[in-house]
């Protein structure tokens, strides 16, 4: 990847994290850790990879994204705002009845959201249906899905893992944001999902394992997926850090569904070189 492009994406990721933390503190509830871990994957897709028209959110020839780990909605919303699908000030009415941004993505309320998600386990099936339908229409649009590592404990994920391979959905690229933590603790303690890569390989997917915070590695993995012959669906297991970008949030189970208070937000902004955008909680 061109170093200039890479530093542009790094800067966009930083901007996204500043917005995520501000909007979550303002909202007073929401999922901090899992939003911060998925920022690079989303920034890569929204600013480098996906074919989109922010002025025409339902453009039929666009690429699709299903954020199956819907609780990372704040991260998605920052991308939609930064990319021009929604105005930025909407971000600060997250989770409020006078705002349009729901706690989890809602396609009928937020332009740019391709499918409502939030109840874990459902997004991959939806992405498979999209990939199947696009192929049937001879469209060259791509479908991306982002799953959590805790999320793959859901049985429906493995039903979809089977059907994607059975129907040879090579126009589908899925990521697992493997941040190793879920609400009740470490994934390996709550319900071990490892070896993740071997599981997906055995289900008939092309699997790559990367550092999910490294744009160059994300880029190489996508390029490799596209260059491959054959007709397998693609899985990119992205090893990530929950709460990435803020030292006292990184790797903390306690920040799964908890938002920073004002003091924590100020400290986080110091680390990220950002500023507190709105004083007070509401």
């Amino acid at each position: 990847m061109d170093p200039k492009e890479q530093s542009r994406l790094v800067e966009l990721a930083r901007e996204s994290r500043i917005l995520i933390l501000n909007m979550l503190t303002k909202a007073g509830s929401g999922h901090t850790g899992g939003s911060l871990s998925v920022v690079e994957i989303l920034a890569y897709l929204y600013f480098h990879k996906m074919r989109l028209r922010p002025s025409e959110p339902s453009w039929p020839d666009r690429d699709r994204l299903v954020l199956s780990k819907g609780h990372a909605a704040p991260a998605l919303y920052t991308m939609l705002a930064m990319r021009g699908f929604i105005p930025k000030d909407v971000l600060f009415r997250l989770r409020r009845v006078d705002g349009s941004l729901q706690g989890h993505p809602d396609m009928l309320r937020t332009p740019g959201v391709d499918a409502s998600t939030g109840s874990l386990g459902q997004g991959l099936s939806i992405a498979c249906g999209m990939a199947l339908g696009l192929r049937l229409s001879s469209s060259d649009s791509k479908v991306y899905a982002i799953l959590g590592d805790g999320e793959i404990q859901e049985g429906q994920i493995w039903e979809a893992a089977m059907s994607a391979a059975h129907y040879k959905l090579k126009n589908l690229v899925a990521f697992i944001d493997a941040n190793q933590l879920q609400i009740d603790g470490r994934v390996q303690d709550v319900m071990n999902v490892e070896p993740i890569a071997a599981k997906w390989e055995s289900f008939g997917w092309n699997v790559q394992e990367i550092d999910g915070h490294d744009f160059a590695q994300i880029d190489e993995a996508i390029a490799a997926a596209e260059a491959r012959d054959g007709d397998k669906p693609n899985m990119i297991v992205a090893r990530t850090t929950k709460g990435k970008g803020v030292s006292f949030i990184e790797g903390k189970v306690g920040f799964h569904g908890v938002t920073p208070n004002m003091d924590e937000l100020r400290a986080a902004m110091k680390e990220l070189g950002g500023s507190v955008l709105l004083e007070g909680k509401s």
Partner: peptide
């Protein structure tokens, strides 16, 4: 796999089927 069937149907509808 009924759950996957419903999700797949949703995805198909989302792309115009």
């Amino acid at each position: 796999s009924e759950q996957d069937m419903i999700g797949t149907a949703a995805g198909l509808a989302l792309v115009g089927k």
